[in-house]
């Protein structure tokens, strides 16, 4: 097997930092998959916003007479075990899953970035304290902690969001803290500070570009992980409580009818996967572009 392997190329100089202007100009050169991903997520976001208007039927109201109907023109994806229109439930589930998922990544990002910035900026005991807490949190297996917290505080979106925030903030904190420390150590930054360049300029020119890009890349995949976790918890009955439509609990509901009414499980799964694909494409596209 002849392999197309790599050897080292001579380094031609010190590594450069991305300038904020350069970061802005890169938007034009995003790879196709990024735009496809954004398109997909955009469509889902629109669905989420207009879900209640788009849904032909009430997603929650049971209609037992009509239960387990096959797909037809009146019910495009049939009805579930309580007679509810699957399509309507899917549309509303989009709203719930996407919102909770997004928040489930957003809150940790805000908390983590804030704490990490504090640790990096103030240093000393603040840094030590925050990083110790981070170490302890990271030592505890995240998913296990989430299960334990869900148990402690009962199921529901609130619990899950708290659980995510408590476990995931660490990554964001380390991202920005490490960047701050790195920039602090650069010779020309120290020179700039000595010369009196104000902090906000240093933050804006040197810290933000790298941090923003890395954070955004991580954020996009984090939303996906959040949605997957929510769906998984709902599947086992510890997530979004019934009767609210959620992809995971819909799949659980359709589980016993796998043989004859397979669309009850396939449809939510496909909906979830396509959204997931959208996020992965965005994250991958960003990653590709930023590592060029």
């Amino acid at each position: 097997m002849t392999a197309n392997l790599v050897s080292t190329v001579e380094a031609t100089g010190a590594p450069t930092e991305p300038d904020l202007d350069v970061v802005r100009s890169r938007w034009k050169d995003m790879p196709t998959k990024f735009w496809i991903g954004t398109g997909i997520v955009g469509v889902y976001a629109l669905i989420a916003v207009f879900a209640y208007w788009l849904a032909p039927y009430d997603p929650v109201e049971p209609d037992v007479v009509n239960r387990l109907a096959s797909p037809s023109w009146s019910h495009l994806i049939g009805t579930d075990e309580l007679g509810r229109d699957v399509l309507s439930r899917l549309l509303v589930a989009t709203r719930i899953d996407l919102t909770v998922g997004f928040l489930g990544a957003f809150f940790p990002m805000v908390v983590g970035t804030a704490l990490g910035a504090m640790a990096g900026y103030f240093g000393k005991w603040v840094d030590v304290l925050i990083m110790r807490v981070a170490d302890i949190v990271q030592a505890f297996p995240a998913y296990i902690l989430i299960i334990a917290l869900v148990f402690a505080f009962g199921q529901g979106a609130g619990t899950i969001l708290i659980a995510f925030t408590i476990t995931v903030w660490v990554v964001y904190a380390r991202l920005i803290r490490d960047e701050i420390l790195r920039v602090r150590g650069l010779d020309y930054v120290q020179a700039a500070r000595a010369a009196g360049v104000p902090s906000w300029r240093i933050i804006g020119r040197h810290i933000l570009p790298n941090t923003i890009s890395q954070t955004v890349v991580y954020f996009t995949t984090d939303v996906l992980y959040a949605i997957l976790a929510i769906a998984s918890f709902s599947f086992i009955g510890l997530g979004i409580p019934l009767p609210a439509p959620e992809w995971g609990s819909m799949i659980e509901g359709g589980q016993e009818f796998l043989r004859d009414n397979w669309w009850l499980t396939v449809a939510p799964g496909v909906a979830l996967s396509i959204l997931g694909l959208g996020f992965m494409l965005i994250g991958d596209g960003l990653d590709d572009r930023l590592s060029e």
């Binding site: 996906l224 997957l228 769906a231 998984s232 599947f235 995971g248 799949i251 659980e252 589980q255 796998l258 043989r259 397979w262 499980t265 396939v266 799964g269 979830l272 996967s273 396509i274 959204l275 997931g276 694909l277 996020f279 992965m280 494409l281 991958d284």
Partner: peptide
């Protein structure tokens, strides 16, 4: 592997049941 990440474990399991076991 990109696509694999988007499919939760219970979904994969149910698909295997649906497409293989049943």
């Amino acid at each position: 592997s990109l696509f694999g990440v988007t499919m939760p474990a219970f979904w994969v399991g149910l698909m295997l049941i649906m497409l293989v076991a049943l």
